[in-house]
Every structure is written in structure tokens, then in C-alpha cells.
Design a protein around this nucleic acid. Sequence first.
DNA 1: AGTTGACTTCGAGTCTACTCCAGATGATAT
DNA 2: ATATCATCTGGAGTAGACTCGAAGTCAACT
Lengths: 117, 117
Amino acid sequence: MKIDEVSKQLGLTKDTLRYYEKLGLIYAVPKSASGVREYDDLAIEHIKFIICMRNTGLTLKQIKNYIDLYNQGEQTHDERLEILNAQRQYVIEQITTLNESLEFLEYKIARYHNQKN
Amino acid sequence: MKIDEVSKQLGLTKDTLRYYEKLGLIYAVPKSASGVREYDDLAIEHIKFIICMRNTGLTLKQIKNYIDLYNQGEQTHDERLEILNAQRQYVIEQITTLNESLEFLEYKIARYHNQKN
DNA sequence: AGTTGACTTCGAGTCTACTCCAGATGATAT
DNA sequence: ATATCATCTGGAGTAGACTCGAAGTCAACT
């Protein structure tokens, strides 16, 4: 798959895909002899992982850090587990906050329908 | 309440509180004769509203727009309702996305505990 | 009276995450 | 063969949300 198709499939712009690669977030994107990226399944999975982590609120720097740890191998196992656990906790908090905001929005909307605002 | 106490209570820095006011997000913060802010209950509620809207993913500009509409009175009723409804929908989507990310994180964490990674 | 500490304004600087542009190269269609 | 199109690199620019520093003011304590 070339960059345009990946872009459409994953919802990132082509610039963003190249930007992530430049930051070192995506390694091992195969390139043709003339330098054109040819994304394989591994690269796609890798990008999906980045999108997922980004959705949880990690910065690109933090994601890079995680990937670097991963590449350092077994010795960073515990540190990576800690990151995942912390992020899990953070996601739970975010969901709680969003549920509260949702309730508040629905309360407001109900009031709007009662012409009270 | 002076700015330092508000800052601690709401979790925004003093700079951020002044910044929001400068953007026109918080109006009517009473000031003492010498120009010191003295936040009252109305101002606090107002800031809590801003934090809540920000948590749903609205930009400060969008929040400002909503507040401006509000200040224009009854004639913007429908437009404001539309904004709230759209944001409600967006929050629901965010919760869905976060739940998916949570599942993925838990799957990863489980694998880590099985020594598979 | 002087010092301390919290407040003020204003403008500039920072960080994150893109986003865009220029100029070059290469593959494909007519 | 030439035109079109997508891709490439490198670097600059942008948007959003702060964050900081300088210089000044004011209230309260010693």
C-alpha cells in the first residue's frame, strides 16, 4: 500500500504519516528502489497502535519513549507494563470525566427543550 | 476568593485564569478598587462550565463563540442547542473510542502478565 | 518606613502537533 | 517524447493553549 491509500484507510494525512516516521514513531516502512514508501501489514499495525495510544492522551513524545523502550528488549518489560497500567488508569478517569460532562450536557439540553434557557 | 484559591480549587493555574479572562471566556469577575480579582460564586460556576466544555473537546474559540451567542440572548437559542447536541454526540463517540482503547490496553497488559511480551 | 508577598498588566516565548511549500524525482498515460 | 500525477526531502509556518518574565502596585507585618 502506498501512502495515499494508508492515509485514507487510517484517517491520517500523508504529511502526518511522514511526520510520525520522521519522529521515529514508525520504523521499518519498506521503500521502493526510488524511495517510495510501500507500507506492509506490520507497518499498518504499528500505525494503528500509535493512533490508539494517541487516542488515550499520550503525547507523541511519550509514544516514542514507549517504542524506544520496546526496542531495547526484555529488560524494559516492567517499565513498559507500568506505562500501560498508568495509561489504563488515566483512560478510566477520562471516561468518568466524559460521562460527567455528558450528563451535564444532557441536563442542559433538557432545559433548552423546556424553553428555560 | 482571590485568584490563588480559585486556582487551587479548580486546578487551573493563575496564568490560565487570567488568560481565559483575556480571551473573553470569563466576564464579570469583580475587582477590588486596586484591581485585584475577587471571584464570586457566579464567576466560579462560569469557570466550571468552561472546564467542562473544554473537557468535551471544544476549543477555547468554540467556547467563546458559545458564550457570545449566549450573551446575544433568546434569538440564538436554537443555534446554542445545536452546538450542545453536536457536542453531546461527539462526547458519546469519544467514550466509545476510549472504551476500545481501554480494551486494547487491558489485552496488552494481560499479555504482559503472561510473559508473552 | 521599609520589606515581604500576592496581586496586576503586557508582551514575548514555548510546546505540541501538525501543515504547507518548494524543488526534485520517478512512474504512467497519450 | 512529453505531460501529468504521485511521491520524495527539508525546512518553514501555523494554531492552540498555555507559560513566563519584567516592571509595577498594594496590603500587611515588623
